[in-house]
């Protein structure tokens, strides 16, 4: 495909266009990804997550600057939420990335979640691959501001960095399941504020309480991103963790698991598309069933089962063609 060739030759315009093609699921997108896939595997993927306002964008900006000092090229995917009511989005992460936004070797793409709930957008993993194939040394994914359970980043990045800030709740918040379990590195940002040391202690205690034996102890790093404090240490730790993953064989493991979950998602999505068109084509039929189900004349389980059978028939019919 011409667009993919242009990307390989280093065209930024083609890179941006290809991401749009894939994100909008336009014709040719899947074929393009088929060509992109063999070219991937060289970039190191850093995930940055944390609650809204913790400083993810500023930290992304500063980490990128530090990586640029080491002459590494960087791609950034910055995700913000889509309105569930209008479908619109305000993507404002670039505001905090002024330091790197006009650097030729940094490519920033803002993306809206478009209905995805895990903290990323559906096209995130494909966009990572495109940036990887383009030749970026690092790809940084900044998730939407997350709460407690949006942990898709773990299945997309090589390393997950959890950014928190002082004043975010009591110590029980720190031992709840979900987001606090995924940090390969913890960053206590805005560490010049009151309560930073207490927060570090709480995270330390939480990590100490863990009964799961881990080969890697997640470090806790204090930063003041706006003042460039702690960034050097953070990047050192990122690289240390990378070495650990490579030496222990865990990087290969993580990447294999990632592909596994991606394949399953792709299949789910394909099947979902059949369901979607089936329902669209038989709107009245489904409305009638719904009416009957509400009135207890039918049960929903049977309808679900029959629908699956119909989808299966359609799929096998398509496969024969």
């Amino acid at each position: 495909m011409e667009l993919v060739d242009e990307v390989r030759k280093g065209s930024v315009r083609a890179l941006a266009k290809l991401i749009t093609l894939v994100e909008n699921e336009m014709p040719g997108g899947v074929e393009a990804m088929e060509e992109i896939y063999p070219l991937t595997g060289n970039a190191y993927i850093i995930g940055i997550t944390g609650p809204p306002g913790a400083g993810k964008s500023t930290l992304t900006d500063r980490i990128t600057k530090e990586l640029r000092r080491k002459n590494c090229t960087v791609g950034i995917i910055a995700i913000d939420p889509t309105s569930p009511f209008t479908g619109g989005a305000l993507l404002g992460d670039r505001v905090r990335m002024q330091g790197v936004s006009s650097d030729e070797d940094v490519f920033i793409r803002s993306m809206a979640t478009r209905g995805s709930l895990g903290g990323l957008s559906r096209a995130t993993s494909d966009t990572v691959k495109i940036l990887d194939a383009y030749g970026k040394d690092y790809v940084i994914i900044e998730t939407v501001g997350v709460g407690q359970d949006e942990v898709d980043i773990v299945r997309t990045a090589d390393i997950s960095i959890l950014v928190v800030m002082p004043g975010g709740g009591d110590d029980i918040q720190a031992i709840k399941a979900g987001i606090m379990e995924i940090g390969d590195i913890f960053v206590v940002n805005k560490a010049d504020r009151d309560g930073a040391d207490r927060l570090v202690t709480e995270i330390k205690m939480m990590l100490g309480l863990s009964s799961v034996e881990r080969e890697w102890t997640s470090p806790i790093i204090k930063t003041v991103a706006t003042e460039d404090q702690g960034i050097g240490t953070l990047v050192e730790k990122i690289n240390e963790h990378r070495e650990f993953l490579v030496k222990s064989g865990m990087l290969a493991c993580r990447r294999k698991e990632r592909i596994r979950s991606e394949i399953i998602k792709m299949i789910e999505y394909e099947i979902y598309r059949y369901l979607d068109s089936l329902i669209a084509e038989n709107k009245d039929f489904f409305e009638q069933r719904l009416e009957d189900i509400v009135n207890k004349k039918e049960d929903p389980y049977l309808l679900a089962k029959k629908t699956v059978e119909t989808i299966a028939k359609r799929i096998s019919k398509n496969a024969n063609v």
Binding site: G88, A89, L90, L91, G92, V95, S110, A112
Partner: peptide, 12 residues
């Protein structure tokens, strides 16, 4: 523009 369903990139 956001409320009209567009994706708005705001750069500051």
């Amino acid at each position: 523009l956001r409320d009209s369903g567009m994706e708005v990139i705001y750069t500051g």
